[in-house]
């Protein structure tokens, strides 16, 4: 997994609540058995006028020019502003894969759906929760300023605006360390092999039908 320390990046605003993972990456793309290649199909139904199919070439597809990620000013964005309950619905990890493949490393929202939030950390994406009022301001500033960029620092847990205003965010200490170092948590858990075996032996004597 790619480590996340800090980024300074262009911001794209997705101003709608309850964005679900079906919208982030529609089901036909879930047929792939790979982890990469989903970026061109991110928000497929909102970005394109036609119906996307896995593995198709997206260069000449008719686009919905109004959709935020199609607007020239947001090309190259690496930070996404979102509204409440971002990433609700299906558990598909294809959603963070698609966001990452498209170029997003950080998503800032007032709240996230649990499974999606968790999936982000497994893929080197930093989901940041900021208060709704701060979000309203970021949305407003982003709309008003072309080239609006934020500075996100995971070590200091801060988001800094172009006018040097800084907001701090909370993050679980363990997740922070894994993200900072790009650690694979399977390796970490396997260091506990002895404890897992011990648990299993004890549990097997109490509840043998589970084994």
């Amino acid at each position: 997994m790619q480590a996340f320390t800090s980024i300074k990046g262009l911001v794209a605003p997705l101003d709608r609540a309850n964005v679900d993972t079906d919208a982030i990456i529609p089901k036909q793309f879930l047929k792939s058995i790979k982890r990469t290649g989903y970026g061109p199909f991110l928000f497929d139904e909102w970005r394109y006028k036609d119906v996307g199919q896995p593995e198709m070439d997206c260069t000449d597809r008719p686009k919905r020019s109004k959709f935020v990620l199609n607007q020239p000013r947001y090309q190259g964005a690496s930070i996404l502003l979102a509204r409440e309950n971002f990433g609700c619905g299906s558990s598909r990890e294809h959603a963070p894969w698609a966001l990452l493949d498209f170029g997003f490393r950080c998503i800032v929202a007032p709240s996230f759906a649990d499974i999606f939030y968790n999936n982000c950390f497994k893929n080197g994406i930093l989901p940041i929760v900021l208060d709704g009022q701060i979000m309203d301001r970021l949305f407003a500033e982003c709309a008003a300023t072309e080239g609006y960029a934020l500075n996100v620092n995971l070590e200091s847990q801060t988001v800094t605006t172009p006018s040097a205003e800084s907001f701090s965010f909370d993050i679980d200490a363990f997740r922070k360390q894994c993200l900072l170092k790009g650690l694979d948590d399977i390796g970490l858990t396997l260091q506990e092999s002895a404890a897992i075996r011990e648990y299993e032996a004890e549990r097997k004597s109490e509840a043998p039908w589970l084994f």
Partner: peptide, 22 residues
């Protein structure tokens, strides 16, 4: 609980998940 693919791999490899109590 529903989990993502990285956790599917984690459970296959370790029979465990790292979880915070909700």
């Amino acid at each position: 609980m529903g989990i993502g693919t990285s956790e599917v791999e984690h459970v296959l490899a370790t029979q465990c998940l790292i979880q915070k109590k909700p």
